[in-house]
């Protein structure tokens, strides 16, 4: 049995890495918003879901016109990034800013607002998709070229679409790193995250910077939605919840507020979850199967909160939600 398990390991790791890419991209949205506002935007899972839906619509309407599957996927990514980014900005504008403007420092109020928004966006999407297409279960169509396998060493094989997912994730992470470290906007985002009131003394309008942060985090969430669709094909208006909460776990795992922590946390969580889900099945003779992989992610969260509450890359500071 151990030989078979060892043989399986590289493919399981690859599977975990792909899932981790999706988690990491969503986690960035949670962590960036937490950085500037100190709150968890629980509606972010729906920003991700809407990105996935926007991607499906691109496939539905542009699929027949764009022959090259990569060009089609990139179009879907760009559209989803735009739609999700704008949605995230709208959420900030309509749900969070009014609360901030009233000077409310209560952390529970925006949290409940976010949960309410989540429900609204799920059911609204279901309504719209139902009216538009008669059903709200959607599929990313399979494509031969995207599914084509490349042989790798160690008996592994990788699909073209998996290479695309990893490539897009790397490019987005490098771009985000550049933006945050080198650009004027990135410096302003970090300044506002550290001390918004002092940043305003330098002529920075914190509201504008917060809106941009939602735009960027939302766009990353939208990209994650399309990547998710490419990998797992089936989506629906309620598909955001589990990946959203896992990505939130990943953000906490890496150290909430730290973008490198979110990247690392996503990859680690995706890998551990896939490993755990697969191997527990074998180790328990099928008594604990892959359907328990969700529990696995949260066991990791509980252990982390017990032993390293600041996260892998986070700094010690006791407070916040």
């Amino acid at each position: 049995m151990s030989d078979a398990l060892l043989e399986l390991l590289p493919s399981v790791l690859l599977e975990g890495l792909l899932l981790g890419c999706v988690y990491a991209m969503i986690a960035l949205g949670y962590t960036m918003v937490y950085g500037v506002l100190g709150l968890i935007n629980f509606a972010h899972s729906e920003v991700f879901m809407i990105g996935a839906v926007a991607g499906v619509e691109v496939y539905r309407y542009l699929g027949p016109h764009i022959g090259n599957p990569y060009a089609l996927a990139l179009t879907a990514l760009v559209v989803a990034a735009g739609v999700s980014g704008l949605l995230a900005m709208a959420i900030e504008r309509m749900a969070y800013r009014p609360l901030r403007a009233r000077g409310s420092t209560n952390r529970l109020v925006p949290l409940i607002t976010a949960i309410g928004l989540s429900f609204f966006l799920q059911d609204f999407t279901r309504l719209i998709e139902g009216l538009w297409h008669g059903e709200f279960y959607m599929n990313y169509p399979a494509n031969e070229q995207m599914e084509a396998l490349h042989e790798l060493p160690l008996g592994m094989a990788i699909q073209n679409k998996s290479i695309l997912v990893i490539g897009v994730t790397i490019v987005m992470m490098l771009a985000l790193d550049y933006l945050v470290r080198k650009t004027k906007l990135g410096k302003a985002i970090r300044a506002v995250a550290q001390d918004a009131s002092t940043a305003s003394l330098m002529g920075i309008n914190p509201d504008r910077i917060i809106a941009r942060t939602f735009l960027i985090g939302g766009a990353l969430g939208g990209v994650a939605g399309v990547l998710f669709g490419l990998l797992y094909s089936q989506i629906n208006p309620f598909v955001g919840f589990i990946p959203g909460i896992k990505a939130f776990t990943a953000a906490v795992l890496g150290g909430i507020g730290n973008i490198y922590g979110a990247m690392l946390g996503g990859l680690v969580l995706g890998t551990l979850e896939t490993l755990g889900g697969t191997y527990l099945f074998f180790m328990t003779d099928g008594a604990i199967g892959n359907e328990y992989k969700d529990i696995f992610a949260f066991i990791i969260l509980v252990l982390l909160l017990l032993f390293r509450p600041q996260g892998l890359l986070g700094k010690t500071q006791g407070e916040k939600v």
Binding site: A188, R190, A191, Q194, D195, T198, S200, L201, M202
Partner: peptide, 29 residues
Amino acid sequence: YEVAALGIGHAPEGRKIFPQLTVEENLAI
């Protein structure tokens, strides 16, 4: 931020520098 744009430069009480920005980045801000 509007007042700053009109020409008020305020070095606030307690210095309030951005601790996780470099000296260079603080100046850039």
